[in-house]
């Protein structure tokens, strides 16, 4: 990073909601592959399926406000060789229809692509009912399921196109608010891979989704304190890229995980499980700690719940005290 302040860097970056990248990716996947179809539960515009629906009306199904039917119809579409993308808000899908996903998609092994938009507290004023925080935990425990949380709209676009040819059931979480676009067309993305976005020696900050940008922002703050932090971006929470993560944590010997969701069962849970079995390491987990969100402005909420660069910095200091 350079000498600009975080505010200056962020101000220079384009801001776009991650879900927009999904919309573009789905349209592109639709153009490339005839068997890509889409269904939505009455949230076509806000989950960004409108681009696809307009271009391919004969391959688009409006399900209405019926999330159990959404994913189960998806299972039937997949049974006939389609690659169905089914979208709603994450609070409703996979929030409401977990059993249907378990039985008709995971156990039944059908490659349905479940898109949960509006995940995290950054949903903002809509409040706790709509701020989905448990989706990663819900999907992570299901055999056969792949769980993806892209860090910006560009990565979401790549992830969507990759999902269209993946033979497994997939879940991808998206965010509502505009966030910085800091990856480019050239940034690598592959399902199942984690990436070192910023190399460092002293501590591994392992982040996913919207929080990866906050982790990178924290690197600058830490550098001023003489701490050389490594940032590992984990867009695929399941299956976890264990070798990349263990390589980083063996080198640094200290870990902070960061996510916009419950740490119980989330990325923090996944990393803690991995390290406990393979390489016990001091760890501090940033995320929601067994409580719900509430109404507020997105940036206010991130600050309130400790999901920003400043709190990541504090967590790094705390974990470094336990190192050695």
């Amino acid at each position: 990073m350079n000498n600009m302040s975080l505010a200056e860097i962020t101000a220079k970056l384009e801001q776009e909601p991650i879900r927009k990248g999904f919309g573009r990716g789905l349209l592109e996947a639709g153009k490339r592959w005839d068997n890509v179809v889409a269904a939505c539960a009455d949230l076509t515009d806000s989950t960004q399926m409108n681009l696809f629906a307009k271009e391919f009306p004969e391959r688009y199904i409006e399900i209405g406000v019926a999330e159990q039917n959404l994913v189960t119809t998806g299972s039937g579409l997949a049974a006939m060789g389609k690659v169905p993308f089914v979208s709603s808000y994450a609070a409703f899908s996979p929030g409401r229809n977990w059993e249907q996903i378990r039985t008709t998609i995971c156990l039944n092994d059908r490659p349905v692509k479940i898109i949960g938009s509006h995940a995290g507290v950054s949903v903002g004023p809509d409040g706790a009912t709509h701020q989905m925080l448990e989706d990663v935990a819900l999907m992570r425990v299901l055999p056969n399921m792949v769980v993806i949380a892209p860090c910006d709209s560009v990565e979401a676009e790549k992830a969507t196109i990759a999902m269209a040819t993946d033979k497994r059931p997939n879940y991808m979480r998206l965010a509502r608010e505009a966030t910085p676009v800091f990856t480019t067309d050239k940034t690598p993305f592959e399902i199942g891979k984690a990436y070192v976005f910023e190399p460092g020696e002293d501590v591994s900050i392992i982040a996913t989704g919207t929080m990866t940008y906050q982790a990178l922002a924290a690197v600058d703050l830490l550098y001023k304190n003489g701490i050389d932090a490594e940032v590992v971006h984990v867009p695929t929470i399941k299956p976890l890229d264990e070798s990349t993560i263990l390589k980083s944590t063996r080198k640094t010997g200290a870990v902070v995980t960061v996510e916009e969701g419950q740490i119980n069962g989330g990325l923090g849970g996944a990393i803690a499980e991995l390290l406990a079995e393979e390489h016990p390491t001091p760890i501090k987990r940033i995320g929601m700690r067994d409580h719900f969100g509430e109404s507020g402005k997105p940036e206010e909420l991130l600050k309130h719940f400790g999901l920003d660069a400043k709190h990541i910095r504090l967590a790094v200091h705390a974990v470094l005290e336990r190192k050695n």
Partner: peptide, 14 residues
């Protein structure tokens, strides 16, 4: 409760 939904998906694909 999920058989008819799967039938719907299959029918739409067909």
């Amino acid at each position: 409760g999920s058989g008819l939904s799967q039938a719907c998906g299959m029918s739409l694909a067909m």
